[in-house]
Design a binder for these strands. Structure first.
Length: 304
DNA sequence: ACACAAACCTGCCGGC
DNA sequence: TGCCGGCAGGTTTGTG
């Protein structure tokens, strides 16, 4: 479930169940799902078992659970990862890569299942570092003490990831200046997680459609008015997708209870090739760009 | 700085 | 029915 709204749906579902819980045990069925865990820092299962989970935090598409050991369980869903809450004795499904057993103060004993078809996603135990700006590292909902030390700390592999546009500490001016300074296409910039995080192929195409910008226009040529409009469009499409529970094209992209989101019905450009642009009626086209598909209205989104 | 390809993977779908 | 190419929401790494 991979872009910001889908990962946030997972985080929001996970948080009330895992916050304050104790990890009773871990079962790893697919070692490749731990590809990003550095074994020289310790054995994954040993670093996790017995720890208390303090929260569920998200920045962009990265999700982590700070532990009382000072480290964090970092999860990235990749293209096809899911985190599911089950009963401890729930049957093992074929694509189940790992299962955490936790004792939750709110929900009793639970299984947290990591299911991932393509194994592009991963779990790892990571060390934490302080944020550069001293602001909270990511979004964690309202739970927990506001002065907890984990709030301004983030896993090392996330330190280079930019804040996302829904983060109160996101620096609009800095982002707009970066767009102006870059010599690259605007969609490339939107997808660059070091510039702004959380945007993937779907929401890039949707925001570009909304702001009527061609994906390959130089980011420096978009200008302040349209750049602001584009940033606003990203936020707006994120908020609308969140309200709909995210985008699900099939059973692959689901919340912690296995339920699909409904935003696929609200897409204006992504996957809409051949269908009329909701604004002007011109058929949406799909084009290859960056070795993936880009969707745009050939009339509303002309290259300038 | 930036572009590009490759690597990491499985499963589904349409065409033949 | 079965095989094959093409497609899929991502990140990292290496090369030029």
């Amino acid at each position: 479930m991979p872009e910001l709204p889908e990962v946030e749906v997972v985080r929001a579902g996970l948080a009330p169940a895992v916050t304050g819980s104790r990890v009773l045990g871990v079962e790893v069925f697919e070692p490749r799902s731990l590809r990003r865990h550095d074994p020289t820092t310790g054995v994954f299962e040993e670093l996790l078992t017995g720890a208390r989970i303090e929260a569920a935090v998200r920045r962009g598409k990265f999700l982590w659970m700070p532990l009382d050991t000072g480290r964090a369980l970092l999860a990235h869903l990749g293209m096809s990862g899911q985190l599911l809450l089950r009963t401890p004795d729930a049957p093992l499904v074929p694509l189940l890569r790992a299962r955490l057993h936790v004792a939750s103060p709110a929900h009793g004993d639970l299984a947290v299942d990591f299911v991932d078809q393509r194994i592009f996603g991963s779990l790892a135990i990571e060390r934490m570092v302080e944020t550069e700006d001293g602001a909270p590292a990511g979004y964690s909902g309202d739970a927990g003490e506001t002065d907890a030390s984990w709030r301004t700390r983030l896993p090392v592999p996330v330190a280079h990831i930019a804040r996302d546009p829904l983060d109160p500490a996101f620096d609009d001016a800095r982002f707009l200046a970066a767009l102006r300074a870059r010599r690259t296409g605007i969609k490339r910039a939107l997808l660059d997680q070091n510039l702004v995080s959380g945007i993937g192929n779907i929401y890039a195409d949707e925001a570009l459609w909304s702001a009527r910008v061609h994906y390959d226009e130089p980011s420096s040529a978009v200008g302040p008015v349209r750049s602001r409009r584009l940033l606003a469009a990203v936020r707006e499409v994120f908020e609308r997708a969140l309200a709909e529970g995210g985008t699900s094209f099939d059973a692959q992209y689901v919340n912690v209870n296995g339920a699909s989101g409904y935003f696929a019905h609200s897409l204006n450009a992504y996957g809409q090739q051949g269908r009329p642009c909701p604004r002007c009626g011109t058929p949406i086209v799909r084009e290859q760009f960056m070795n993936r598909s880009s969707h745009r209205c050939p009339r509303c989104q002309r290259r300038r």
